[in-house]
């Protein structure tokens, strides 16, 4: 069954989106979008290294992405504004990567496949890598969920509860590197951050707790990858960008319906609050 490239593509898209969903929520909550970009851009350097030294792609992307993420962490609080610092790191990494790739002689490589992904060319090994990465990241986030939430809410509150914010931040940063490494084949370097942010942003108006937001963003991301795959097959468009477009459409749709959603959430809440009051009055 897994021989069918469309099924492989669907499973790969699903795996990446399930991983990106909870992590994407943290990217939004902690305003790490630019860090995501920097990490993703650094992975082009990983592609170049893998071609030059014939290393496995995922491994070398994982290495460069982690290095970039750790470097940005280490350089923060050194007097540079975070977006300036990440702007320098992110774009130099992309440029150095592109230059390095051009040095690779012999094979002509399809750079577009790494910039925008090529979900239809996913092999069974890729699929395995994606799902192993997915389990690693989702498992790690689930295991530390409450600590991560408190650190995100306020680092000092976390410290007062005996949680080390630096360790939690390291976990998020390394998870980001893993997601980048497994997603590069699917959506490509330039659109990874889109798959992190758009589904999570779409889930926000529908959510009242962090857990619902993470789950709904998985639903939105999963639907986007499924529908996008079908659409790209139907209209013969590049798959990665089509998936991102679908996610954007879902995001717009949810936001257009936002007044109605707010109204429903509010009236449900009023019902809940009204109940104990009514019983109280009857007793009185």
């Amino acid at each position: 069954m897994l021989d069918d490239f469309l099924i492989r593509a669907a499973l790969a898209g699903l795996g990446v989106n399930l991983t990106a969903a909870p992590l994407g929520c943290f990217v939004i909550w902690r305003r790490m979008a630019y860090l995501g970009d920097a990490t993703a851009h650094a992975s082009i350097l990983g592609v170049a290294l893998s071609l030059i030294f014939s290393l496995p792609l995922t491994l070398s992307v994982l290495l460069t992405a982690s290095l970039m993420a750790l470097l940005s962490l280490a350089l923060s609080n050194r007097g540079w504004a975070m977006d300036t610092l990440l702007g320098v790191l992110s774009h130099s990494a992309l440029a150095i990567g592109l230059v390095a790739v051009s040095f690779v002689s012999g094979i002509r490589i399809d750079l577009m496949a790494y910039l925008f992904g090529d979900i239809l060319a996913v092999s069974q090994t890729d699929l395995l890598t994606i799902w192993v990465g997915a389990f690693l990241v989702v498992g790690m986030l689930a295991y530390r969920w409450s600590n991560l939430l408190l650190v995100t809410l306020n680092p000092d509150l976390a410290i007062a509860s005996g949680i080390d914010p630096k360790r939690e931040q390291l976990i998020l940063t390394l998870s980001l590197a893993v997601v980048v490494a497994v997603a590069i084949k699917i959506v490509g370097v330039l659109l990874i951050v889109a798959m992190l942010i758009i589904p999570a942003a779409g889930a926000r108006p529908l959510s009242r707790t962090p857990e619902t937001m993470a789950m709904l963003s998985a639903v939105i991301g999963g639907s986007a990858s499924g529908l996008g795959l079908i659409a790209s097959y139907q209209f013969d468009t590049p798959t990665g960008p089509t998936i991102v477009c679908t996610a954007t459409l879902l995001f717009l749709l949810i936001n257009a319906m936002r007044p109605a959603i707010d109204w429903i959430l509010k009236s449900r809440q009023k019902d809940r609050q009204a109940q104990p009051l009514n019983t109280g009055e009857r007793h009185g």
Binding site: S146, L150, L153, S161, I163, S207, T209, P210, M213
Partner: peptide, 12 residues
């Protein structure tokens, strides 16, 4: 970050 009062009291 969506957060209800109950969820906030349940942290961590």
């Amino acid at each position: 970050l969506p957060m209800t009062v109950a969820r906030f009291l349940s942290l961590p």
